[in-house]
Nucleic acid binder design. Structure first.
Lengths: 141, 141
DNA sequence: TATAAAATCTCTAGCAACTAGAGGTTCAAG
DNA sequence: CTTGAACCTCTAGTTGCTAGAGATTTTATA
């Protein structure tokens, strides 16, 4: 049985974040010492690693909740899991697309001014003021 | 002079968001009718367009504050503006990089399971549980 | 002009996923 | 047995909004 600090070290998840995950129901309520401090076993470590890994891949807390639910029932169909993963994948792809558009536009704007003049003549500021100076679309989704 | 609703329609910024921008100091306090409703002129419309455009490009409220400050002083050096823009550009590039890593990993994981089995055998879940099943790094920044 | 509907006002609270800090208790080493 | 590190709970803050309540004002129609 290890303390929350030790668990934190091993998983690289901060202590308050671990407590937050518990509050959100991602982690079951930890066992406690007589003095009310949390203690974790191997199962706790593995679950937190799972969560951490999923968070690193950008899954939301809610999605992770569902994934854990499935993991806890080995006999259920895993369709929901693959659905969650592919929806996450398409989210990521959408974000990449949008960011690439932004990158293009930002780099074009940036190149327009070297920062040596005054703001009156600044192409960066002018571009923001006047959408007509823009190439493409960059609406929010 | 136009109402906040009209301004909202023209700029595609929602009414509560306009009020929020005012509260944050991005927009100056609007003139009011005798009945205390906000009225905007051309300058207000232009400023909000500027903000909206900058937000679309992903600039933070704080960054936009600085940009507006510069825009209001045409004689100042625009170095800060170009700095802000290029820092935003590099932020965007960093995000793209990270998302591409995620995309690779997610697509690899997704392909590993067609969702027709049970969760015990699901490659998606197994990958999340065991980091060794991963290719690369996908740490948070 | 009267009335009703639409728009506006302020205020508070909520979202995601944490992070920071206060003030107090417990654990582990020496 | 002391002391200092680690832990506890609780509240509030972060970012950029969005939603809703309850009250008032404006505008369009009868």
């Amino acid at each position: 049985m290890i303390s929350i600090g030790e668990l934190s070290k091993r998983t690289k998840v901060k202590v308050p974040t671990i407590r937050y995950y518990e509050e959100m129901g991602l982690l079951p309520e930890a066992e406690r010492t007589s003095g009310n401090q949390r203690r974790y076993d191997k199962a706790g470590l593995e679950r937190l690693s799972f969560i951490r890994h999923a968070r690193d891949l950008g899954f939301s807390i809610e999605a992770i909740s569902s994934l854990i639910e499935l993991q806890d029932h080995p006999d259920r169909s895993c369709e929901a899991a693959t659905d969650i993963a592919s929806s996450q994948l398409s989210d990521v792809r959408t974000k990449i697309k949008r960011l690439k558009t932004l990158e293009k536009e930002l780099s074009r704007i940036s190149k327009g001014c070297n920062g040596e003049g005054v703001s009156e003549d600044c192409y960066v500021l002018a571009s923001l003021a006047d959408h007509n100076l823009c190439d493409g679309e960059h609406q929010k989704p």
